[in-house]
Design a protein around this nucleic acid. Structure first.
Length: 358
DNA sequence: GCCTTCTAGAAGACCACAGTACGAT
DNA sequence: ACATCGTACTGTGGTCTTCTAGAAG
């Protein structure tokens, strides 16, 4: 079962730590798999390829597994609102009895254009009933992927890149762009290079008690990670995810903290023991960097901050919950009884079938 | 130009509760 | 080693309150 509060996208299922890149452009992470072409495609390439002609538009595609991001999704878990490949589905839903009761349905293939197909109800992410919103939902998903592709080979997706306080994605680029313009290029280009090289292998992150960080004299104020937002777990396996109180730990990507320390002070003694060195492939040229910064700037102009629903079941509960002046109110005993009766009635009507969580 | 007041919009807080992980037993 | 229980934590939406930026005097 996916632990709530952790980002299930891009986490674990697969032994690999990289999402598959688009077979066409080789730069953006793929989001769909085209059976006809036997190709993994990013959103833009998918749109381009499958809008080329009528035949191509009929190609059936499926979303890429949200867990491993490396295999075509085979099932849609309605409880988790996640598209999963067979392997990840088996892993996740065999983790415990509750997870095994999740209502899953086979993934329906996508045909036509992802962006304009009005009849298609997105199997991926969260289902929107309003057709006009579907494009927006897809755009947001696309945004996440694209943002992740600006600089990092495979950053953590979703909120983690912000919540962890890492210099990931926007924040990192903000600093980068700022520093490029303020003459600190060298310092941050060093960090940049490390970030570029930074492989988001789960093991690369160390969950360290904040006290340890605070005890380090080299941990500069202003550079410390926002531990109040850093509550996330990442152990490479959904079913084995670790929940850590955000008040107790800071999550420190080794390369980042050591490199920042290098920029402002000496590297902490002994950190190499805590955080072993990482394998860091380097493949981006300055031109690539520039292009990605430009893409980032363009994207920043148009980016959206709309709320994303991660748990549809909670949304459903919240919408049915009684309120007083907008605040959730306690259910009266009568309401509770009615609910009980309704659930009992429904239970009898379907012969005791276990309902999905939404 | 500077200050004060007003206004509109944005952002955050608040609430109850289901679901989950984890430690203790 | 396994099961059970209690605790802590998270996320969800509508409304209200507080904050902030801009306009007007």
């Amino acid at each position: 079962m996916l632990k709530e509060g952790t980002n299930n996208v891009g986490v674990g299922g697969s032994s690999s730590t990289w999402s598959r890149v688009c077979d066409t452009c080789r730069s953006a992470p793929c989001i769909v798999y085209c059976h006809a072409d036997s190709a993994y495609l990013c959103s833009s390439c998918d749109a381009r390829v499958h809008a080329a002609n009528r035949v191509a538009s009929r190609h059936e595609r499926v979303w890429v597994c949200e867990a491993c991001e490396r295999a075509p999704a085979a099932f849609l878990c309605k409880a988790d609102a996640a598209s999963l490949c067979s392997s990840c589905d088996a892993d996740i839903h065999s983790a415990n009895p509750l997870a095994s009761r999740h209502h899953r349905v086979p993934i329906l293939p996508i045909s036509g254009s992802l962006l304009v197909e009005p009849d298609h109800e997105p199997e991926h992410g969260f289902v929107n009933e309003v057709e006009e919103e579907e494009e927006e939902v897809f755009d947001e998903y696309d945004d996440e992927i694209e943002a992740a592709s600006w600089l990092l080979p495979h950053p953590l997706k979703g909120n983690e890149e912000e919540e962890n306080g890492f210099l990931y994605g926007d924040e990192f680029l903000d600093n980068l762009v700022d520093c490029n313009s303020c003459g600190h290029h060298n310092q941050f280009s060093n960090v940049f290079q490390q970030q570029q090289n930074y492989n988001t292998v789960p093991q690369n992150y160390a969950v360290v008690p904040v006290q340890v960080l605070q005890q380090s004299q080299h941990f500069q104020p202003g550079l410390e990670f926002d531990s109040s937002k850093a509550g996330f777990s990442y152990d490479g396996s959904i079913s084995q995810s670790v929940s850590v109180s955000s008040m107790e730990v800071g999550v420190v990507p080794e390369s980042t903290i050591s490199d920042i320390s290098v920029s402002y002070s000496k590297s902490p003694i002994g950190t190499s023991d805590l955080f072993p060195p990482l394998p860091m492939p380097s493949h981006l040229t300055p031109l690539d960097r520039e292009a990605r910064v430009l893409r980032y700037r363009e994207k920043k102009k148009t980016r959206k901050f709309e709320k994303k629903i991660r748990y549809a079941s909670r949304k459903a509960y919240a919408e049915t919950r009684p309120r007083i002046k907008g605040r959730f109110a306690k259910r009266t005993d009568v309401e509770a009884e009615v609910d009980q009766m309704l659930s009992t009635t429904l239970f009898n009507e379907v012969g005791g079938t276990i309902f999905p969580s939404f």
